[in-house]
Computed example of a mutant assay.
Amino acid sequence: MSDEIGYAVQDGVAVLTLDAPARRNALTVAMARALADAARTAEADPSVGAVVITGGLNFCAGAARDVLAAAGADPVGDRSYRDLEDVYAAFTTVGGIGVPTVAAVRGAAVGAGLNLALSTDLRVVARTARLLPGFAQIGIHPGGGHFTLLQRVAGREAAAAMGLFGQEVDGERAVSLGLAWSWHEDADVEPAALAMASGVARDPDLARRVVTSFRRETAPGGVPWDVAVELEHAPQLWSLARRRAAATD
């Protein structure tokens, strides 16, 4: 994939590892493109039933400063516009691939790094993790759909506290707010994320159909109950027929 994006498949789980520790995994344009490519590679592999995104000691410190500096120096220039767009594509691609996704968050998830964590279907975090927008602290407006991501995961109050007022939360607080499913001590974060992912990954075909229904029904605004019944009807019938066929083989 890239020297800065690790890719490995284990028991049906594709593990995408951000690996630029010297800058706390801040996303350069090349690294963002490699991450999006890795996510698409996982989606294209029918043996993959789940994806885990991890960054080791520090999840992701956001967009690299030179990317932001270039965008500020030439905000309407084609190159800087497209480069920033590629950084956004790193997490919009992760959020759109057709397999369940889990973020294993240790250390800091800041700005675009927080967006990346929020783009996944589920987050497992370290007790001492630092989740913060960080945009206002460096004098820029949030980007990448930040308020929408916060709102859909944790609601308006948390979106206001973090995105508008710049509040930082640790792992324990993140779980209490609904920003993450569980918190763990540092060494246990990746194993917990892999354990969560491996359960659904045992059946990649089913995982992909279930995550499609999940995202449709939990999208902002939701769907009426009767519509949800219809959305689930066809894939459930498919799963029942497949189960019966397997039992008679």
Rank of each mutant, 00 (worst) to 15 (best):
A158H: 11
G143W: 03
Q236F: 15
V105L: 06
A14T: 01
L150T: 08
A245F: 05
Q10L: 00
A159R: 14
P224E: 14
D74S: 14
M196R: 10
R23P: 08
S80L: 04
A129K: 07
V124M: 06
L231S: 02
P220W: 11
L16P: 00
L132D: 10
M31P: 01
G143M: 06
F59Y: 14
Q137R: 11
L131Y: 07
V15R: 00
G163L: 11
E217D: 00
V211D: 05
D83Y: 03
T120E: 13
T248Y: 01
P133F: 09
S47T: 08
A89C: 05
G199C: 07
D45S: 06
A174V: 14
E217V: 04
Q151W: 07
R79F: 03
L164I: 13
Y88N: 07
D37G: 04
L132H: 11
E185G: 05
F147C: 06
D186F: 04
D66W: 13
A22F: 09
G72M: 08
A245P: 02
A246L: 04
A109K: 01
G113D: 14
G96S: 14
G96R: 09
I53F: 15
A193P: 00
T101Y: 02
R33G: 00
R244I: 13
A64H: 15
S47A: 05
A245I: 04
Y81C: 05
R243I: 12
L179P: 08
L114C: 10
R23N: 15
A129N: 09
V87N: 06
G145F: 08
T101N: 02
V15L: 02
A136M: 08
V94W: 03
G107D: 10
A154V: 07
T128H: 02
D3V: 10
D83L: 01
L132C: 09
A187Y: 06
I97H: 03
A117E: 10
D170S: 07
L179G: 11
R79A: 12
T41Q: 12
A246G: 00
V9F: 03
A112D: 12
L231E: 14
A8D: 12
F147I: 09
V124F: 03
A117F: 01
L177E: 10
G49S: 10
M196N: 02
G166C: 12
E157R: 14
V13R: 01
V169D: 12
E43T: 04
Q236A: 15
R242F: 04
G222W: 01
P224S: 09
P224C: 09
R106W: 06
A32P: 00
D45C: 02
Y81W: 04
Y81R: 11
A64C: 11
A112K: 02
M31E: 15
R243N: 14
A70L: 03
A247F: 03
A71W: 08
F147T: 15
G145N: 14
